Amino acid sequence: MERHKTALVLAPALVLVAAAAGCAGQAPLTDAEKLARVEEMVEEVERRFPEVEAVTVEEVGRLLESGGVVLVDARAEREREISWIPGSITSEEFERDPDRYAELTVVAYCTIGHRSSEYAKRQNEDGRRVLNLRGSLLSWTHAGAPLVGPDGPTNRLHVYGKTWDLAPERYETIW
């Protein structure tokens, strides 16, 4: 009887170990699965920052074609050293002379949109209209839009951390 009690106590633990082992051996997410996860994360960002207006990658593309936008990279320097959206400026550059961009639509971005939403919120509170790129770099890359790095066009992307390692398969992610 004692032997059966031990087996019953250990059985749930063995199930958890087996489940964990199965998870570790799972195939990597497909690009479609990554994009679905990005969308879930974006919806959470939008719930946290309802006062921040967001624009899509497609809308930014139209603004870029007309020359009516400045993109502001709200990420840390170590992330920006890897890659950035062509033509974008750093948040520090923007803040040195925000009046220079008064006639343009200002759109901030980061990895997923949380930090750029925080940035846009602060700028908006200071009287500057700054929008957030919905889904930021992860949406940008899933849309097939280009990135550049120190040596020109690149497929390298700093994704801030493992949680945000959701770039399309063709990208080399760093964190």
Rank of each mutant, 00 (worst) to 15 (best):
G113S: 10
I89E: 03
E33D: 05
D126M: 14
L138N: 10
E103C: 01
V69S: 11
G113H: 06
R37T: 13
P50Q: 11
R80D: 06
G113N: 07
L29W: 02
Y171Q: 02
S66C: 07
P28E: 07
I85A: 02
P98V: 00
S66V: 04
A13V: 15
G149M: 06
P28V: 00
G61M: 05
R80W: 10
A24I: 00
N124Y: 12
V9S: 07
R156C: 05
W140A: 07
V148F: 05
H158T: 01
T56M: 09
H4M: 15
G144L: 04
W140H: 10
E81R: 14
A36V: 03
A120G: 09
A27S: 13
I89A: 02
R75Q: 05
S88T: 00
E81A: 15
R48N: 11
E43P: 05
R122K: 12
A19D: 03
P146W: 06
W84I: 01
G135S: 10
L64Q: 10
I85S: 00
H142F: 08
K162M: 05
Q26E: 11
L104A: 13
E93G: 01
E95M: 08
A143Q: 12
V107T: 08
S139R: 13
L29V: 01
T6V: 15
W164Q: 01
V148P: 03
T173M: 02
L8S: 13
D31T: 02
Y171N: 03
E65N: 11
G135I: 12
